[in-house]
């Protein structure tokens, strides 16, 4: 049985681990520290933890001020508030100034579940990757979350890391290499490539198993860094399989799919089918039912893969 852990849980643990080693790390939260799990850091290092109350705009710029003094400032809230409410603070003060602020937001995607559409952020990849110089990462599981937090500390400048509320299967191993902007293929096939991020990576692997039973062999790429996207691996797999499916828990506009399509259209055009949320808001419900409603299940990826294969030039 695969172990199930929410990426946000791994975040809090990684902060505590890093906080021991690096005294420059400070953490800010906007009254959601139990949910984002930054409270773990706050308990261990109270003098370096700032609960800023329900005031995200102020929190972002307070982090910016701390960063001008050499601090590595982690800022957390739910993704809708971090990237939506405080977008312009991130754009104008943090990114324009090139400050070392790490925005790690939880509760991304419809897998937030019962809280409903207001709390299910499905636009954050787009909102963050459109800002010049911003880096955007969505780890696929708890193991990769720890690595991405470590990498964020080593990374100079602003970064956005997208985490989820619900438990997701652990599909990567501690020893797997991780570096920002460098994707890896989790399996290789000759017929189609599925490029996924976050919770959809596990579904892509399941879809690949299902496709294999029908004689279609799929490559699965874990595209944890959406910006800067790994162009090299995209062009390489496109040349190998000539049909691509993208999969993300995000609106189709401006997300992973559009980033992949941009690279492929300019370098090696092949049919691209996209799995994502098509111009709709989320709603209350348990994550599994919402994944079915918004066509994010392995079955949906299988159908998209068949469509992509069918569109290949004969």
């Amino acid at each position: 049985m695969t172990e199930m852990i929410a990426t946000r849980q791994a975040y809090g643990d990684a902060l505590v681990e890093l906080g021991e080693k690096n005294k420059d790390i400070v953490v800010l939260d906007a009254d959601l520290s139990k949910s984002t799990t930054t409270a773990k850091f706050g308990k261990k290092f109270p003098e370096r933890f700032f609960n800023m109350g329900v005031a995200e705009a102020n929190m972002m710029n307070t982090a910016a001020g701390l960063a001008t003094c050499g601090k590595i400032a982690f800022v957390s809230s739910f993704s809708i508030f971090a990237t939506g409410r405080a977008w312009e603070q991130i754009r104008n003060t943090i990114c324009y100034s090139g400050l070392n602020v790490k925005i790690v937001a939880t509760h991304s995607g419809v897998s937030v579940g019962p809280d409903g559409a207001s709390h299910q952020c499905i636009e954050d990849i787009s909102l963050m990757k459109t800002i010049p110089t911003m880096t955007v990462v969505e780890p696929c599981d708890a193991v990769e979350t720890r690595k991405s937090i470590l990498a964020a500390v080593a990374h100079k400048g602003p970064i956005y890391i997208r985490l989820g509320r619900a438990a997701v299967p652990v599909i990567t191993k501690k020893e797997d290499p991780f570096s920002i902007g460098k994707a890896s293929a989790l399996r290789n096939g000759k017929d189609v490539a599925i490029v996924a991020c976050g919770a959809l990576v596990a579904n892509a692997l399941t879809a690949a198993d299902m496709l294999s039973k029908e004689g279609i062999e799929a490559t699965v790429v874990n595209m944890h860094t959406i910006k800067p996207i790994d162009r090299e691996i995209l062009v390489k797999v496109a040349k190998q399989v000539n049909a691509v499916v993208t999969a993300e828990q995000h609106v189709l506009d401006g997300g992973l799919g559009s980033a992949v399509a941009t690279v492929l259209s300019g370098n090696y055009p092949v049919p691209v089918e996209m799995i994502g949320i098509d111009n709709r808001f989320g709603q209350s419900g348990e994550p599994d039912l919402l994944f079915k409603e918004y066509h994010l299940l392995p079955e949906d990826i299988v159908l998209a893969a068949k469509r992509a294969v069918g569109r290949k030039k004969k």
């Binding site: 400070v26 003098e47 370096r48 700032f50 705009a57 102020n58 929190m59 972002m60 710029n61 307070t62 982090a63 910016a64 001020g65 701390l66 960063a67 001008t68 003094c69 050499g70 601090k71 400032a73 312009e88 603070q89 104008n92 003060t93 324009y96 100034s97 090139g98």
Partner: peptide, 29 residues
């Protein structure tokens, strides 16, 4: 990034006091 003596990029109103608070908190820390 380009002007010596400027502590933070700005111009979008309402944001500077928060930055100042962050600097002040760093000073205390």
């Amino acid at each position: 990034k380009i002007t010596p003596g400027i502590e933070i990029s700005g111009g979008s109103l309402g944001q500077g006091l928060s930055v100042g608070l962050g600097i002040a908190l760093a000073g205390k820390l």
